[in-house]
Design a binder for these strands. Structure first.
Lengths: 192, 192
DNA sequence: TTCATTTTGTGATTATAGTCACTAATACAC
DNA sequence: GTGTATTAGTGACTATAATCACAAAATGAA
């Protein structure tokens, strides 16, 4: 049996060219299908993070609450792995929140099952490593944007490199993500 | 034979609790001792990145040249792995430079040898994954600093979380690293 | 469809850090 | 030890984006 959702997961993992059919099947076996309604929390700060999510449909936001303000640090769209790695890897209470910004469907992979996969064979370790390399390269890009681009250039960065975000995430959250005041981003867009 | 330098490497890797004596010995076997004089480049933008360095002594800087300005993105001190992962993992020409900011000694591990280790056993893959998790958590912290802290708070961040940088890296480079004008950082420090 | 909530737009003002220009101090090479 | 490089400090000024306050629009639920 291959549902559309499983094929989507397969396609994403196949980019790394590591798992064969049997390994993918093992991966899938430990995934649980989960749905979230808009504004539902997948992870609440203060709690431990117990796993990762593969987004089938919808969008998930990662944010931190800093003096009453929601500081968005990432967004996860269709076919991406939503993750908060600090708490997951160090097993300390999370300072961050994962929230469904829209109605969302996902595959959930618990930390326990993930660690079992890592133990099972080198292929899963390799997949984990490659995924982390990929995530790290993205994260470095964001850091660069925040470190050195002016507001207008940050907006252009979204246009050019993250058009899906621009299309699907409210400006308010994007401003937070880019380290700008909402009004600033609104004015930049108005000028175009 | 165990030199002081090898013990330093061993201690750093032992934090991850993965390699046994024989595996560490395999790791060490593929390391080359390399020295760099002040201002010598370990990686020049435009070139391919062929490996990683473990800093035995000295400091290494990672920067990008953006309209004539050196934009420092990281510093690597004693007992840290100096890396530029984008070019290393994607095998595209590097946009970044690695430079010895002081006279530096290091162990060099080539990409080829690294990949051989990854193939050799699951322990090396796991070490790679854990190292990446660690690096990613640090990188997320920097992003947070750049996204949401005011100049004064950024300086405090260095004081509290990166005192070694504050001690050993010129203010000019630290300002770049923190996304601030050199003068701003200088004034902040003067106020203390 | 209507009402409440969320999201966006925009003007006026202020705070803040960037830039420029120059001096001082420190480090480093010969 | 002298001279050159690099690094740091500081005042004056300017540009820029944050903040505040409010209105408008869009979205979503009942």
């Amino acid at each position: 049996m291959h549902t559309k959702d499983e094929i989507s997961l397969r396609k994403t993992l196949d980019k790394f060219n590591i798992l064969n059919d049997s390994e993918f099947s093992d991966f899938l076996k430990v995934c649980e299908y989960k749905e979230f309604s808009k504004k539902e929390y997948l992870l609440l700060s203060g709690n431990y993070n117990h796993g990762v999510y593969f987004v089938i449909s919808g969008t998930i936001g990662l944010f931190e609450l800093i003096n009453g303000k929601e500081l968005y640090q990432n967004f996860f769209l269709e076919s991406e792995f939503a993750n908060e790695l600090k708490s997951l890897t160090t097993q300390t209470p999370s300072t961050k929140n994962l929230i469904a910004l829209t109605k969302t469907t996902s595959f959930y992979l618990s930390r326990t099952k993930l660690l079992e996969l890592y133990d099972k064979s080198i292929e899963f370790e390799r997949l984990g490593r490659k995924l982390l390399e990929h995530i790290l390269n993205s994260q470095n890009e964001i850091s660069y944007v925040l470190q050195s681009l002016k507001p207008e250039e940050r907006y252009k960065y979204l246009e050019n490199k993250k058009p899906r975000l621009l299309k699907s995430i409210p400006l308010t959250y994007l401003a937070s993500y880019l380290g700008l005041a909402r009004e600033t981003l609104s004015r930049i867009r108005a000028k175009k």
